[in-house]
Amino acid sequence: MTPLGPRDTSQGRHESPEERADRRWNELLQEVRVIQTGVQILFGFLLTVAFTPRFPTLSQTDQTIYVVTVLLGAATTGALIGTVTFHRLVTGHRLKPETVVWAGRLAMVGIVLLLATVASALLLILRIAMDDTAVPWIVTGLVAWFMLCWFALPAWVLHRYSDRE
């Protein structure tokens, strides 16, 4: 058994633990590239808000939501970039399977932080753009949608189809 699980060739892949780690690392890297682009764009826009003429006119609550959103965006960026620096720091030490596991966990933390960042950004934008009473319901609905798409559906598919032999 390896940190990536037992070697099971009955599923159609005939790869060593090292080959599996290489494949999984490449898959993780592609996933992080996709998500990191969106995070960088969102974070870049967030950083500019404080320098707009309207920012000082925001309520203290909205300014606090903004600060929390920026901090969440920075934490998200840190976690996602951390997957690459993790690999860079342990590369050459024959720890690829362990690196893939831990970098994957770090990427998942980044995804959870992204959910919080997007929710916080939506809360701020919608509080400014529309009636406050509807905003919490809209943000809650969108967070539920993200959780369905990002977590519940993959979990259901994993549960539904992983029991097949």
Rank of each mutant, 00 (worst) to 15 (best):
T140F: 13
Q40G: 13
T140S: 15
V135W: 03
H93C: 10
G5I: 03
A75I: 04
L42T: 08
W156D: 07
R20Y: 00
A75Y: 02
S162Y: 03
L148W: 07
L142P: 01
I138A: 04
L46M: 13
Q36T: 13
V139Y: 10
T99A: 14
P53Q: 09
T140R: 05
N26Y: 07
H159C: 07
T76H: 05
S16F: 02
E15C: 02
G82T: 04
S162T: 11
I65F: 02
T61E: 08
V34W: 15
W156Q: 08
F146P: 05
T57L: 08
T69A: 05
V143E: 00
D22P: 14
P6I: 12
V135H: 02
S16P: 11
T85I: 10
M1A: 08
L42K: 00
E31Q: 14
V84S: 09
E18D: 15
Q60W: 13
W150K: 02
Q60V: 15
R13L: 14
L113D: 05
I65Y: 00
R24G: 00
V143G: 02
W145A: 15
M108F: 15
R20W: 00
T57Y: 08
I65C: 05
R33K: 11
R88M: 10
W102V: 00
G73I: 03
P53Y: 11
Q40V: 15
L126P: 06
S10D: 06
T2D: 13
E19V: 00
G141T: 10
M1W: 01
V67P: 06
I128A: 07
R88E: 04
Q63W: 06
G73A: 15
H159P: 02
A134P: 03
F55M: 07
G38S: 08
G44L: 14
P53L: 09
L153E: 10
P97L: 01
A74K: 06
V84D: 03
L47E: 02
F51D: 09
L71Q: 05
G78A: 11
R105P: 03
P3T: 12
V112C: 04
D22H: 13
T85H: 06
T61M: 07
V67C: 05
E27G: 11
L71N: 14
L47N: 14
S59E: 11
V100F: 01
L58S: 08
H93F: 10
